Amino acid sequence: MSNTQRGLAELLGTFWLVFGGCGSAVLAAAFPEVGIGLAGVSLAFGLTVLTMAYTVGHVSGCHLNPAVTIGLWAGGRFSAKDIPLYIAAQVIGAALAAGLLYVVATGKADYSLAANGLAANGYGEHSPGGYALLSGLTIEVVLTAVFVIVILGSTDKRAPAGFAPIAIGLALTLIHLISIPVTNTSVNPARSTGPALIVGGWALQQLWLFWVAPIAGAVIGAIVYRTIAPEAKERPAIEGAPL
């Protein structure tokens, strides 16, 4: 696949992740009487990754997340030269999704960006459950590390073929079930950046955490996986790996 095709695949996939995941939180989570709630939002995020993994995994590897891209590089599965392309495409896709979601949300007469938000990530007074910075930092590092471990493990050439998207999608669902109350769940700097660009103010001020913590967690996860499940011969870093 060409760089253009791979970049567009990452843009499309990340657009779907943010529009589907954040859209479920903004448009459907608190809908009177039939709102999908935390469990529904968690499932929505998992489903976006599951569906896109089968759709564009063969094109770009379906990273949809700068932390995953860097984690795969740290795990020996991705070439460093392609990191800028992937991260740029992911952030653009997330920003486009957040902008379009805002257009849809403002079609409701009583919608207020200040009051209703756009599923932006935060800590302290902007944490859904009022969790402090240290709690947010800890949960984002730990859960991103585990997410990358699941990705590396399920896409390992020794793992059963064809099931990786299911494991990864379910892992992301579980991650959201755990951490929505703490930070609104990031584990993905692009997912955090899209809504923050629309919300501005506090969301941009706190955005640093949702780059630093997931990337740190991704590198830790890669180191852990390479320690517990070393390959007999490290596979070369290839374009678009792992899916």
Rank of each mutant, 00 (worst) to 15 (best):
L197P: 00
D156L: 03
S186M: 02
S179E: 01
G200M: 13
A196K: 10
I175L: 06
P195W: 08
L207P: 03
V199R: 10
I228R: 05
I151Y: 01
T227A: 12
T155M: 09
T185S: 03
N184K: 11
A229R: 15
G221E: 11
A171S: 09
L152Q: 07
G201Q: 14
G169N: 10
L197K: 06
A216M: 11
F163Y: 08
A222S: 11
P160Q: 13
S179N: 06
T155F: 02
A190E: 06
I220S: 00
G169K: 08
A167D: 03
V187S: 01
I228F: 14
I168G: 04
H176A: 02
I178E: 09
S179G: 11
L197F: 12
N188A: 06
L174I: 07
S186A: 13
P160L: 12
T183N: 08
A190T: 14
I178S: 06
V182S: 05
W202Y: 15
T183S: 15
V224D: 04
L170R: 07
Y225C: 03
V182D: 04
L170G: 02
T183F: 13
A164I: 03
I151S: 03
A196T: 05
I223E: 04
F210Y: 15
S179V: 13
A159N: 10
R226G: 14
G201I: 00
A167K: 02
R226A: 03
F210E: 06
V224Y: 12
F163W: 01
L207E: 15
A171P: 11
S192M: 06
S192W: 09
G201A: 14
I198S: 01
P195Y: 10
L207I: 14
A171V: 00
K157V: 13
H176V: 09
A218F: 14
V224P: 06
A229H: 12
P160S: 12
V182P: 00
R191N: 03
P160R: 15
L172S: 05
Q205C: 09
G221W: 13
R191G: 04
L172I: 14
P165L: 07
A216L: 15
A167W: 01
I228V: 15
T227F: 09
V219G: 00
R158M: 08
R158T: 02
I228C: 03
L209V: 15
P181I: 05
I215A: 11
N184W: 14
V199H: 01
A190R: 11
S154A: 14
Q205S: 15
A213P: 00
H176Q: 09
L177H: 05
A229V: 09
I228K: 05
L177R: 04
P160H: 11
T173R: 10
A190P: 04
G162Y: 11
F163N: 10
L174P: 00
T173P: 02
S154L: 03
I175M: 08
G169P: 05
I220Q: 00
N188I: 08
I180H: 01
